[in-house]
Structures are given as structure tokens and as C-alpha cells.
Design a protein around this nucleic acid. Structure first.
Length: 583
DNA sequence: GCCGTTTTCGGCCCGACTGTTTTCAGTCG
């Protein structure tokens, strides 16, 4: 935080992100109060705007600058942002928290319950939690409400009995495992000309909640959908019409299927790829140009301007095609309009991998097998980075075993053509930030990757200081999986990632984007922060077997979401350039 | 609450599906 910010007594860390979160909570609470939907929308729009803005508003306010003229933030919201940035408090939010029972939000998780019905349940039956709803359903009171009926009550009873459905998320490979057989089935149907997955899966989000399947077929007579519904692994059909259906697979995932004609396929692909916020922003843009955009095409005065191809939709709106990974309404439309879209990194841009294991520690394949697999990929280099001694569960290497591996790497390098094995280590960063191996040993390595596998519960300040101290080690190069999250299992540890990134910049160190699908750490947001600071990222597989090099695809997906270009990756560099960067 | 080739009022992204109701509101994506 800047000096003027401190002088104004601003609470540390109140930035756009946090203000956006407050605004989103306000929107949700206002919805439960049955407030004017356009007022609610204003808060949601403001939150989106704030997420796309790079400089913390708090600092600008403290520096006496006027708020930038941001779309969707008028006088009222500017005042609220100012109040929030100055005091860290939001009176409106606090009042809403007092007025809306905390359990009411839980009701929104149930199918068929939105803000209106949650509001109705609370005000007409006093239902303020799932438990209270359960009682009201059992007592037959729900079905007597206007707009409710026996069918809806039965639906709620079933949902309350099995609270798990609908909320679960899946890692990308888990989603692929369920999507694969479905796509295979759909593609062999004679009525189906094309089948692909849109939605968050296409946008390469780190986890996906459901699958959006898009089919090109003639939906008119309902035969195509009937054929879809005969897929053997369907457990339940939640809803179905001629063009749309919502299904539950036996594997647990929910699938939304849409059938469209060829001349609308591009529009539908754009529409169902999302994100919702990107779609809304695009439709508003269309509207401002006197057009209407929906899943059938872009129209002006009833005439279709585009629809067959996705790129045509963007072009007709005066934009270059926007890669799916960027479609989150976080500045990409503005960037596209001004021809500032990044040329996103691709898998082929990588010249090697800087984090992998062999059976010397906890990997499955031998050093030679890993090297040959890397060579087959045409890479220039592969860094061998076993765990160090402290990580005994992973059979971490002590000094002697590491020295023996270095000899083995020398012998193999003599044999290999085109590929250079780099001598490395994934050294434990101990609780105090010191490293698990002596400096004189680390000095003999080409590359030192440091990682945290213990003491996750340190305070934010201590964890940050720990990582900074690790980077102060003269031989430290890359901070592996910096935030320590395990998707769907473990939250990242408390960490001031911006400070860590700044320290890496100062020390000439790099951060990793770990491509393991359960990690994807750094996440997309942190990738943008690193790019902004000019800290290169190592997009690394953390392979424990040769086939794990395929996981880099997931890392690339996340990197693209994080706006990274080839030049932002450490391992897009040639071997000679890499050696210079590693000191 | 925001906004303007519709400029201080009256709109606000769009359509399918469901369930309740009898013409439509709510939910969902």
C-alpha cells in the first residue's frame, strides 16, 4: 500500500477485489429482500467492473484522485466505494446482514428456489433455513403458497433428502472422463452432425460443475433429443424439450444438452460457452449497436447478420475473436475493441519442463524413461527435480543420493541428442524459510525449485515471510505450487501473494504454474498479477510418470486464462536463454 | 442504481422450460 494510502488511514488490503466481494454479497442479500432487480443488477455490474480494474481504487481515493469513470459505477456506488475504502465498513451491507437471516441463502441451493421464492417462504411461512423448510414441507404448508404446488413440493422434498446433487464440482480430467463416452455416443448418432462441449469446460476453468453439450442437428420433430435421451449412462432426466434438456449422468455430473441448426451453431457456441457475464456484456454491446444477440444469431431489424460461425458474431460486433479462456467479462471486450488482446501461449510454445520426478523419489518411471519421453516431445531440456530428504514420505533425496543422481544425469546427457537434462531439486522450504539442503550442494545444481509441503497453518504474515526468506537463498530459482491449494480438497494457505511476487521480481526468482489438475497453482488471477509485475512463470507438469507430461495441457489452459503469452513463460525460452535466467 | 443517436424518464440481456394457472411468473443457464 502506498504512502498516501497509509496517511489516509486506509485499512490495509482493501482493494477492488474485496469491494467487489462486498458488492456481490449486497446483491445477493438485496435479491433475498425482493428488492428492485435493477438495483441488484447495478451492484453485480459494479462488482464485475471492479474485478476488471487493475489499480486498487482505495489507493486512488487516498491519493485524492477522482474515481476513474468506470462503466456501471455512478454517483451512488462511488460514494459507497469511497466509504468502504476509507473505513473498511459498508453500512448497507451491515444493515442487510442484520435484516436477512443467514440461513436464507442456503435455500437458493435448492432446485426451483430463487430469490423470489426464498423471500416468499420467509415472509409467509417464517422459513429461514433448510431445517425450517424441511419442517414446512413435512407439514404440507409449502404447497399451499401461491405459486407453489404439489409438484414443486415433491421436488423440494427430494432435494432436501439428498442435499449433495447439483453442487458438486469436478476436476477437468474427471469431467473429461464422463464427457468422453457421452460425446462418443452422440457423435455416432445418425441425426447428429456435430457434438462438442462448451461452457466452463471450454473456457478451461480449474473445476467444472456441469457439462454444456452442444449438438448440431435438426431438432424440429424431437427425434434428435429422443435419441440423446437413450444414452445408457443417464441416471435422471431433470427437464427436456425439443431443443434443450438437463440430465444427470450415473457418474454424478449434470449435463445440459442443446440442439441447434447449422446456421445457428456459431451463435449457440458463443452463447453456451459463456461465461454468463461475458454473454451479458456482449448482448449489451449488440443492443447498443441496434442489434439483438441470442443463441440463434445476431440480428438487426429481424435480419440475421451472423450465426453460422462464432468468429462472425464477434466480427459483426466490431471485435476480433476472443479466446474462450478470456471470456469472463474481466476486461477482454475492451481489450479486443482496442486490439490489445494477448496472443495467448500454446502448448507448442514450451521448450521443456522444469519440474518432474523419477523413481528415485516418489515417481514411477526411471530417469531414462522420463528423458526419452521428453526427447520424443522434441523438448530442448528437462529438469529433474526430486524431493529432498525432509519429505521422507516421498523418499526424498539426501546429499549422497542426490550426488549419485547427478552422476547418472551426466552419463545420460552424454548419450542424449537434442535433449539436455538439467540437474535440479524440489527442495523443502522448512518452517522458518530455510532450505532442506546445504548451499554448497544447491550451488552444484542447474536449477533449484523450492516447495512447501508442511506447516500450512502459519499466519499470513509468517507464511509470506517464510517464502520470502526461501527466495533470499542465493541458489533459489523457482517457487513451486506457490499457494498450496488442492482443488476441491484444501484451500490455499494464507499468503500475501502480491508481496511474494514482488519479492521474486526483486530477487530474480520465478514462480511456478503447476499443471497438475488438482493444483493449477498459481491460479489464473495470480498469473495476471505475476505477468503485471514481470515475473516469468514456469509452467511445469510436476510429472511423476512419463505420461504426466500430458498434464501440461491443463497448465496451459490456466495460463491462457491468466492472459499469459509465450514470452511470459520461463520454459518457452531456449536452453541458452534459460541458463542465463537461472544465473 | 445506471444511463443517454431514447439524454433527466423509462428503459435496463435473452429465451427455454417448469409449474401453476387459465395467461404468466419464476428459475435457469
Amino acid at each position: 500500500m502506498s504512502a498516501p494510502a497509509k496517511a489516509a488511514g486506509l485499512p490495509i488490503g482493501v482493494d477492488n477485489q474485496q469491494i467487489a466481494e462486498v458488492f456481490e454479497e449486497i446483491a445477493e442479500l438485496l435479491a433475498l429482500q425482493d428488492a428492485n432487480p435493477f438495483r441488484i443488477r447495478a451492484y453485480r455490474n459494479a462488482a464485475r467492473t471492479l474485478r476488471g480494474e487493475e489499480h486498487p481504487l482505495a489507493e486512488r481515493i487516498a491519493a485524492g484522485q477522482a474515481l476513474p469513470k468506470l462503466p456501471g459505477i455512478g454517483h451512488d456506488l462511488t460514494e459507497k466505494i469511497t466509504e468502504l475504502a476509507r473505513s473498511g465498513e459498508c453500512q448497507l451491507l451491515n444493515r442487510l446482514r442484520r435484516e436477512v437471516p443467514p440461513g436464507l441463502g442456503e435455500l437458493l441451493q435448492l432446485p426451483g428456489i430463487g430469490p423470489k421464492r426464498a423471500h416468499q417462504l420467509y415472509h409467509e411461512l417464517g422459513v429461514d433455513s433448510l431445517a425450517a423448510l424441511r419442517e414446512a414441507v413435512a407439514g404440507g404448508r409449502v404447497r399451499r403458497l401461491s405459486g407453489f404446488g404439489r409438484t414443486l413440493e415433491d421436488k423440494l422434498r427430494r432435494a432436501l433428502a439428498s442435499r449433495t446433487s447439483g453442487q458438486q464440482r469436478y476436476l477437468l480430467p474427471q469431467a473429461a472422463a464422463q464427457a468422453g463416452p457421452l460425446l462418443d455416443y452422440l457423435k455416432q448418432l445418425p441425426l447428429v452432425e456435430r457434438a462438442l462441449i462448451a461452457g466452463s469446460y471450454r473456457r478451461r476453468r480449474d473445476t467444472v460443475g456441469d457439462l454444456d453439450v452442444l449438438l448440431q442437428a435438426d431438432a424440429q420433430d424431437g427425434q434428435a433429443m429422443a435419441a440423446v435421451l437413450r444414452f445408457p449412462a443417464i441416471a435422471e432426466v431433470f427437464a427436456s424439450g425439443a431443443t434443450r434438456a438437463s440430465l444427470g449422468l450415473r457418474g454424478g455430473m449434470q449435463v445440459d444438452v442443446r440442439i441447434v441448426a447449422a446456421d445457428s451453431f456459431g451463435a449457440a457456441l458463443q452463447y453456451f460457452t459463456g461465461s454468463k457475464a461475458h454473454g451479458i456484456a456482449l448482448r449489451r454491446r449488440a443492443q447498443a449497436q441496434g442489434c439483438k444477440l441470442n443463441e440463434y444469431g445476431l440480428f438487426r431489424d429481424g435480419n440475421k447478420l451472423a450465426g453460422r460461425n462464432e468468429a462472425d458474431i464477434y466480427q459483426a460486433l466490431g471485435l476480433p475473436p476472443i479466446p474462450p479462456e478470456l471470456r469472463e467479462d474481466s476486461g477482454e471486450i475492451d481489450a479486443a475493441e482496442h486490439n490489445r488482446l494477448p496472443r495467448l501461449i500454446e502448448l507448442d510454445d514450451l521448450r521443456g519442463d522444469l519440474h518432474c520426478h523419477t523413481n528415485a523419489s516418489d515417481g514411477h518411471d526411471s530417469l531414462r524413461q522420463m528423458a526419452l519421453a521428453a526427447q520424443r516431445r522434441g523438448w530442448q531440456y528437462l529438469a529433474i527435480t526430486e524431493h529432498s530428504r525432509r519429505l521422507s514420505v516421498a523418499h526424498g533425496l539426501d546429499t549422497d543420493r542426490l550426488l549419485r543422481q547427478l552422476d547418472e544425469i551426466d552419463r545420460l546427457n552424454d548419450e542424449l541428442h537434442g535433449l539436455t537434462l538439467l540437474k535440479g531439486i524440489e527442495v523443502e522450504i522448512l518452517a522458518d524459510g530455510s532450505l532442506d539442503l546445504p548451499d554448497e550442494l544447491l550451488a552444484r545444481l542447474d536449477i533449484v525449485v523450492g516447495a512447501v509441503h508442511s506447516h500450512y497453518q502459519l499466519s499470513r504474515a509468517r507464511q509470506t515471510a517464510r517464502l520470502q526468506r526461501a527466495m533470499d537463498s542465493p541458489h533459489f530459482n523457482i517457487l513451486a505450487h506457490p499457494c498450496g491449494r488442492l482443488l476441491l480438497q484444501r484451500e490455499p494457505y494464507p499468503l500475501d501473494i502480491e508481496r511474494v511476487i514482488a519479492h521474486a521480481k526483486q530477487r530474480g526468482c520465478f514462480l511456478e504454474l503447476n499443471a497438475q489438475p488438482q493444483r493449477l497453482d498459481l491460479d489464473d488471477h495470480c498469473c495476471r498479477l505475476a505477468k503485471h509485475q514481470g515475473v516469468l512463470l514456469s509452467i511445469a507438469s510436476d510429472a511423476h510418470r512419463a505420461s504426466d507430461f500430458d498434464l501440461l495441457e491443463f497448465g496451459i489452459g490456466q495460463a491462457r486464462r491468466g492472459c499469459l503469452e509465450a514470452a511470459d513463460a520461463l520454459n518457452s525460452r531456449s536452453l541458452a536463454q534459460l541458463r542465463r535466467l537461472l544465473r
